[in-house]
Design a protein around this nucleic acid. Structure first.
Lengths: 213, 213, 213, 213
DNA sequence: AATGAATGAGGCTTCATTCAT
DNA sequence: CATGAATGAAGCCTCATTCAT
């Protein structure tokens, strides 16, 4: 009874999560436009019609995924804000970004999201919001961090540093897509992070590379 | 008559160009998968069937566009190699990149290309080839440039510098997609380049910002 | 309600039958390649898309029709096996063959099927299977029949007799196609059977023609 | 000059032959409807447009092929009429029928022709004409042959014998289509002729099988 | 709440045919 | 006489979406 209660109280939320999980799995495998609603329903183990009880249409599913992405980033941001050092904050913010699931998942998803955003203002708004929030958050962290302050950081303002850091992160994410399938997730991640971290060290004059085994 | 002769010698080449021009116009407006062959034929002012005399199928059109993108980048690379200073080489390489045509064209096209690449190995190969060639080219330029040599460049190797520069360029290209439509091409371009140039100055210790009005 | 239950238990089977009925109607009218999926859907009174819920593609529809033809022949074979005399068995086997439906239906369908078979191994397999089964069946019937045994049947073995009988039946089926449209189904059938029966009498020394008014 | 004269006097005839040769090659390989005009032009080594100088449309090509088939049969008939014995006449008439070219060519072509005839009255007329002429011809040969006369031939009239003989020939031609590709042309031909000859012996009381090595 | 049968517009592609050269 | 570029209708198939159950 407690079980049925649980599933009755917020059934729609569970369903939405279930559908979005399935959707992201499909989207990563085949991209937004190559994924049919039937694909999603099969992946989720439900009927096609049911998806339409929870989402107005396919666009809405995509938008919801963008929304979820936004929440994910916000959580990372909160965790990062707790970190003792700026460096650790950066690790939290950009490492999770690329090691979640199976190979390339994040990269493909995010690039697809941007690709969508370029034609769909609703998605663009969400993605822009995510990015703005995240960049503002990092700007704030940088402004408060002693590393950035005491060391001249090349005379760059916190928001300029944040811009650079995010730009490199996005750029390496695109790069990740081109990596050959044979490369393991770990290898790809290492490659992706190496460049990103190189920028951090450069910006904040962190000395040794040994810190990141 | 000599003119008509010229156009008769290689009609197919002209047609291919015409079709690719139309295709890129459509793809930029609606993305790869939202563009139908009919859209392309209409944009090109020809019949649908004619496209198939020049391209095996839609995939082949996309691949040809990727190929053309590759040649474009290679030309830029050659021009950049002629530049007197490293700084000017960078300007050539990354400025043309984002001001060719109407707003966002380049950004949307390239992000779409990467999105395609993530599911289409043939496209991935082409894009990877473009990037590798371009990065190697820049690495070479950096290695030969006095700016990078005399100044320690933070102890980074030429290829590491190249990686960073390209990562930021790609990242700003993604960023460009999110810019509101209201922003003019010039504004967007300024924004995009500002961050990129900030990295160059930082890497190569170029002093004043005044150089780039 | 029990009725509606019946139709709900196996709706897909009914649909398949409905589609195949429509398909055969179209194929007979225009041939395999002249029949579009739209034609079939219209004939069946359903939408095009629905056909694809029951058949993978057009080829599959043709294959299913060949399959159905096979079952039809097998039923005839079973009925023929029950017949008291060899002669009656032959009547069952080869008379139904050519009087089912509207004029020429069987003939056109079967010749089309062979035409398909010549280019489509899957169809060829089915048709060959039908024929082999039917010929073996008749060989068996002949082997057991007193008519064939007591009378020397010209020294031919049962399978040789069966081969001849089927060859003539197929040959007359081709002949049927050439009959002018004006001829009634009955006339055509009479003509077609006359030759076939002439062979039977010849092979099994049946005396009078009067038996087949 | 004599050469160019030759090719100028009746160029259209040569072209027609060339095109028909190409057409039959294509039709045999892929069937009527699977063969495009482009296929034919390529096979013939000419341009598509040129075909339309010699044939009104695709239908006309098919009709011309039927016509040529008719002439081929008529030639056989004339040869057969010269044969010293009925048996040899039959050999001429039905052996050439199945050994012309590469495997199955004749069978596939003829069955396709009948398939076409069932929907195209023009083709039907031609094919019917061929058949009528040939059957009448054989009837005549039988009527004049001592074999058929002196021996009761089971009391069948010449035209009835002819009907049976042609029916079996057509039937074995259909059978040929189902033969597996692995079988050599010779094997298939042997199989096909064995049944046909069995009927002849039966009808005309030819004693030994040894005659047909 | 859940199903999945059903729809039909629309996408990709082929091909008979025409026509300017 | 000959070419082959060009057309556009039509075919096969997919898929987002709806709705009766």
């Amino acid at each position: 009874m407690s079980d049925s209660a649980t599933s009755t109280v917020e059934p729609s939320l569970d369903r939405r999560v279930q559908i979005l999980d399935a959707a992201i799995a499909c989207f990563v495998k085949h991209g937004f436009h190559q994924t049919s609603m039937h694909d999603i329903s099969t992946e989720a183990g439900i009927s096609v019609g049911l998806i339409y009880r929870y989402f107005a249409n396919k666009e809405a599913v995509i938008a919801a995924m963008a929304d979820r992405h936004k929440k994910h980033i916000q959580e990372l941001l909160e965790q990062a804000a707790q970190a003792p050092t700026l460096f650790e904050a950066l690790e939290i913010l950009f490492t999770a970004h690329c090691c979640d699931e199976s190979p390339k998942v994040q990269s493909m998803f995010v690039v697809d999201l941007y690709s969508q955003a370029s034609r769909n203002p609703q998605i663009a708004d969400i993605v822009r919001d995510v990015l703005t929030t995240a960049m503002d958050g990092l700007t704030e962290l940088i402004a408060q961090s002693p590393e950035a302050k005491t060391q001249a950081a090349h005379g760059l303002k916190p928001n300029e540093l944040s811009e650079l850091i995010f730009a490199v992160a996005r750029g390496m994410l695109m790069f990740d897509i081109l990596q050959p399938q044979e490369m393991t997730a770990a290898e790809r991640r290492t490659r992706q992070l190496a460049v990103t971290r190189r920028l951090w060290r450069l910006l904040f004059k962190i000395e040794s590379e040994s810190a990141y085994a």
